[in-house]
Structure formats: structure tokens, C-alpha cells
Amino acid sequence: MRFSVPRYWRERHSYYRLKAAKCLDCGRVTYPYTERCRFCGSSRVVEVELVNEKARLLTYTVIYSAGEGFEDKKPVVIGIVETEESKARLLARITDVDVEELKTGILLEPVLRRINEDGESGLIYYLIAYRPVLKTG
């Protein structure tokens, strides 16, 4: 899969900082940012960032037969996570985890990762992924 360079640039704050839309009417958060609330249709939305929120793993899949551009990265883990405070749901790469450690409900934290690149000469694409929360003493 190839990203589009202009699109990646245009959407970089969604990728780097998880820019999302918080609805002033129903209070729910839509990721990525849209001008209209995905849940109630209101256009009264404000921009928020989810990059400082931890998240729970709701569900996941392990891709053993990865598509074009991801052949070197197998197995690839993709999950749907729900952020702790905003309760926003997003599809994200799950990283720094062994397949046998994966369990729904585990607490994750966002990290910037190098998700893909356009061959050896093209652009490198950095996106927020999630990893199990680092234990601190």
C-alpha cells in the first residue's frame, strides 16, 4: 500500500497528534477530525488531540499475510482501541508486543512509530501506534 504524499502532509496532525473532533452537542469524539460529528451529525465540533491519552485494547487481529509494503514487517498487529478519557475509538497499529501477550482490555499508550515507507527512496510515514503501558517503579 502506498500513502499519498499530499494526503499524508495534509493529515499529519491526525497521524502525529491524533487530532480529533469533539462534539459540543452530544459530547462524543470522532477520530480522525471531521467537520461534522459522526454520531449526531452536529457541525458544532471543536478540535482535540488524543495523543496524551492512554487507551484500552477493544479488539485486535494479527495479520500473517501482510499486504504490499508490509511484507518485511510480518506479523502485523492491528487493533481497535478506546481512549481512556475521551472514549474515542480508533484503528491503530499495536506494537512492542508478542502475539501471545495480546489480550482485549489491556492498557496501552501512544507512541510515534515508523509505520511504512515508499521503497528505499520515497517518503517515510510516521504514525501514532499503541504499545502496552511501560511499567514504572
Binding site: 506494537t95 507512541v111 510515534l112 512509530r113 515508523r114
Partner: peptide
Amino acid sequence: AGLDEDSITMGWE
């Protein structure tokens, strides 16, 4: 560094 890491991602953290 893991497959999805480089000096930029590590520097970010």
C-alpha cells in the same frame, strides 16, 4: 530498535 523504530521515533519519546 524494533522494526517500526528509528532515530526519529526514539528521539520523539
